[in-house]
Structure formats: C-alpha cells, structure tokens
Simulated scan of single mutants.
Amino acid sequence: MTTPIILVDADACPVKEEVYRVAERHKAHVRVVSNSPFRVPVSERVKRVVVSDGFDAADDWIAQNAGPRSVVITADILLAERCLKAGATVLRHDGKPFDAASIGSAIATRAIMEDLRAGMDGVGSGPPPFSKADRSNFLQALDRVLVRMGRG
C-alpha cells in the first residue's frame, strides 16, 4: 500500500500547520503547492512545490498529481471537481468534504454568487471569518480521512 499524500493549495490556506501535524502523526507525505515560496517544516515528508505564477498553475499541478491515495486541501470548487474526478479525497479548510454528491450544487452556487457579485460593483462581504471551530473541524476531518486511508 502506498503512503497517502496531502496536496495543499497553499496560497490562501489557513490550516497548513494543522496539515503538518496530522501528516506527521499518520506518516503521510505533504506537497505545499503555491505560486510563491512558503516556509515549510524541515522534514523528508514535507516538500514545497513552487510553480510558475501563470494563471491556475498551482491548480493544474495539484490536479495532475491527485489520485486515489491523495487528499487535496482547497477551497477552490473547480479544483475540487478536477481532483474528485481523479479519485482524490477533497477537504475544504473548515473540514467539510467536497464529494460527488455535493460538488454539483457547489459549482452552481459559485456561479450564482459570481453573477450576484458582478452586479454589486464590489459591494458586499467575503466569506465569514475563519474560526477555532473551523480549525478543529478540519483537524478531525483530516484525521478521519487518513485513518480510513490507512485501513484501505
């Protein structure tokens, strides 16, 4: 059985430290993928992947490297869809999974929200603040996924 790999869409990821801790406990590999360098722990399991600053370059790298033994951490709905098609498990930063049952409605909601924002001329708010509960939910969700992969 191959070791699970966690692919982190790192540019706006608030849970990188949590990923490192859970990955270490489960002996999983981590790839921190971004357009600019991030500090990562000194570990043979954790590697930084800096891609070009081309549009969607990090997403493309993650999607091309995702598969059945990978967990993708992202809030990007379109990247989540690509990774699900490759057989990966996909988690948002708050621990909620993207899966075959939820991705269609997530894409539809994204399109509606994009249309609404376009008509508001920049007025409005972004996502709610990231909370301690979100962080805790993420830790539990990632742990559950890696435990399940360890059994399979």
Rank of each mutant, 00 (worst) to 15 (best):
T3Q: 11
P4E: 02
L7Y: 04
A10K: 05
A10F: 15
A10N: 11
D11A: 11
C13K: 06
C13N: 04
C13A: 06
P14F: 12
V15P: 11
V15C: 14
K16P: 05
K16W: 08
E17Y: 05
E18K: 15
Y20Q: 06
V22A: 01
A23I: 08
E24F: 08
R25E: 13
H26K: 09
H26W: 15
R31L: 14
S36N: 03
F38P: 01
V40A: 02
S43T: 08
S43E: 04
E44Y: 04
R45Q: 13
V46F: 12
V46R: 00
V49C: 09
V51M: 05
S52C: 13
S52E: 13
F55D: 15
A58M: 13
D60F: 12
I62F: 07
Q64L: 10
A66P: 09
G67H: 09
S70H: 07
V72E: 15
V72A: 03
I73K: 00
I73L: 14
T74M: 09
T74A: 04
A75L: 11
D76Y: 01
D76N: 14
I77W: 00
I77Q: 09
L79R: 06
A80Y: 00
E81L: 00
E81A: 14
C83D: 07
C83W: 00
C83I: 09
A86R: 15
A86T: 06
G87I: 07
G87D: 07
G87S: 14
A88R: 01
T89G: 00
T89H: 00
V90W: 03
V90T: 05
L91W: 09
R92W: 08
D99E: 11
D99C: 12
A101E: 15
I103L: 08
A106Q: 15
I107S: 04
I107D: 02
T109Y: 03
T109W: 02
R110W: 06
L116G: 00
R117S: 11
A118I: 02
G119C: 04
M120G: 07
G122Q: 08
G124I: 13
